[in-house]
Design a protein around this nucleic acid. Structure first.
Lengths: 340, 340
DNA sequence: GGCGTGTGTGGGAGCGCTCCCACGTAGGCT
DNA sequence: AGCCTACGTGGGAGCGCTCCCACACACGCC
């Protein structure tokens, strides 16, 4: 099976059948405007009759491109992913790529060895562009991509001055909305459980908290800010800390649903009712939020839309020669449930 | 940038540098034994000095293969995925592929149009093999794959007589263990909420339920079997039905965590305590299970291991010419929490 | 010594495309 | 009429590999 010469039709055979030259068939396939309607129709008919599908490898070889982009997922992150996030973003990317004949390559990076191997891949131009999710500030990959002039789009950004193109959610706005909501409902001692502050996204959510508190004419009380690490256990610890420092806390904005779940568990242990004694808001609107008791009010990110946008931006960047960096920030939305 | 002749070294340049012919370099790269140690060392040195990375497209074109496999995800399924499942299985596949230079292509199939387009891809031999998750019994893809003699591995199977290679979890055994556990804890009226019975996986879990009930010397009471559809709302409906028919039910095995969550909500509404009045077990051990209140006892599937195994089986199938079908069933495990 | 057999090697041919040059042919201008 | 500019077109060259044939050379055997 699968012998040296498989029966699959080639561009040449299409040309013969259509009674035109190879060049013309190639032009039709690639949508060149420089083809007469007559020739175009003949070629299209021949393609349909023969069931011709262009050979990707040959195209790539001759055209010096790959028609493939890589979706890079740093492994440690996979674990942390609030779960629907992962598949939602993939769905968005897939949707945007569907009409293209761009292929999506999945690349998991676990170890430094794999990272350097991937760097080799990039240097060898095995992909036309790269989609990078969940970048850390110390990740060397974005800089490498920039240096190689490889089109790339990050999901999130490393800092305010991110130079590589990115698509991010409005973390500041989302956090601000959440905290404002708490304050508007009459909560006066609203605390926050932050993510690891060496992550930009965590700092953004903390900024949103601060902005909302200040906008309400209150001062930010450092006793009401507890550091978490985006994990459930971190949420627990932070909540205990908060309760110890400010027993009269009546509202908590956790920078992730998982931390909110941890906080909620501690509140239960301590006999505090949610939302009566303490109102609680998370971030991400994950499956966990919907299944908590009471169901958790949370900030939703337009995850699928982010995936879609990332793909679109990357395709644009690949299409144009010059590398204009694009920065897109998508709005977040407060999903109200029963924890406020 | 990225001009016609990029500076990347070619096999030919490596050959010149090593003072050997193209053929010898090719042999070294592909691990042929028919190379003298001297030549091999020279070539390897040249490769290292030049930072040579083989051109994939050229290889694919000349060798009539692609070094790529497709992971196919039927879109409607993504939504249903108990969430960690998705990323776990990908992680397993990635781990197995890491040492290979096989690429993983992600293919989402949403519409019939996309399905037929993918069929074209397959016919054009754009991948060396296919990994298919979550197949329905009426899915035409497996048969197509078989017909094309394309190496393929399913995650799960369509029926007992599945002809295509597959890797599946021991659904029957897992369900049996869950129900036996309930019976061993003294529950006498143990019900089950099934998945859609046109899905083989749902039938397997129902079989496991039956086997456990019969093994306990009890007869299967049809009144204790309610049909769900793997969704939370389906679990709700089924639980209401069950309560109406058998108000004295004291144990429920739900064929998915999501349905268990639905059932749990109804039980709460009806004032039944879990686990005191009704013990509850789910299937999948998803994030939801861990975050339910009380935390849900559930049957865990070795998801990452399944991904790993799928990849391994596929690679084997690609490596050998003949198509020997492989069937692997991996053990499941009951994870005990607080709902029993 | 002649003949086989085996092992390592070089390099031609070709995979199926895209790129681009060269060649008509038709139309617009002076 | 003569020229210049399009436009549409055919096909050569070449992308970087793998495959495989042919050859050289080192053995062993009769």
């Amino acid at each position: 099976m699968n012998g040296r010469h498989s029966g699959r039709p080639t561009l040449e055979e299409v040309a013969v059948r259509a009674g035109v030259g190879r060049g013309t068939v190639s032009r039709v396939i690639n949508g060149s405007p420089r083809v007469s309607d007559r020739a175009k129709a003949a070629v299209e008919a021949a393609i349909a009759e023969l069931g011709y599908v262009p050979n990707r490898a040959a195209r790539a070889l001759a055209g010096n491109r790959t028609d493939a982009i890589a979706l890079v997922i740093p492994e440690p992150e996979t674990r942390l992913f609030a779960e629907p996030y992962f598949s939602d973003i993939i769905r968005g990317i897939g949707a945007e790529l569907a009409d293209t004949d761009m292929q999506l390559l999945l690349t998991l990076i676990r170890t430094p060895k794999e990272r350097s191997r991937f760097a080799q891949y990039l240097a060898a131009h095995r992909v036309d562009g790269v989609l990078l999710v969940s970048v850390h500030e110390d990740d060397p990959l974005p800089d490498l991509l920039e240096q190689l002039e490889m089109p790339a789009v990050l999901n999130g950004r490393r800092s305010d001055l991110e130079s590589v193109s990115y698509v991010d959610a409005d973390n500041v706005g989302g956090a601000r909305a959440a905290v404002s909501h708490l304050l508007a409902r009459g909560r006066r001692r609203v605390a926050t459980i932050t993510g690891p502050t060496d992550m930009y996204v965590a700092r953004c959510r903390l900024d949103g908290y601060r902005q909302a508190v200040e906008a309400a004419g209150l001062g930010v009380d450092d006793g009401l800010v507890a550091g978490g690490d985006f994990t459930e256990e971190g949420g627990r610890r932070a909540m205990r800390e908060l309760l110890a420092r400010r027993p009269d806390v009546d509202g908590v904005f956790a920078a992730s649903d998982l931390m909110a779940a941890g906080a909620r568990a501690v509140l239960r242990e301590e006999g505090r009712q949610v939302p009566d004694d303490v109102a609680l808001i998370g971030f991400e609107d994950s499956a966990i939020a919907r299944h908590m008791d009471p169901a958790l009010t949370s900030v939703r990110q337009p995850t699928e839309e982010m995936g879609r946008t990332m793909a679109r931006v990357l395709l644009e960047e690949i299409a144009e020669r010059a590398s204009v960096r694009r920065h897109v920030v998508l709005a977040t939305e407060l999903v109200q449930r029963d924890s406020v």
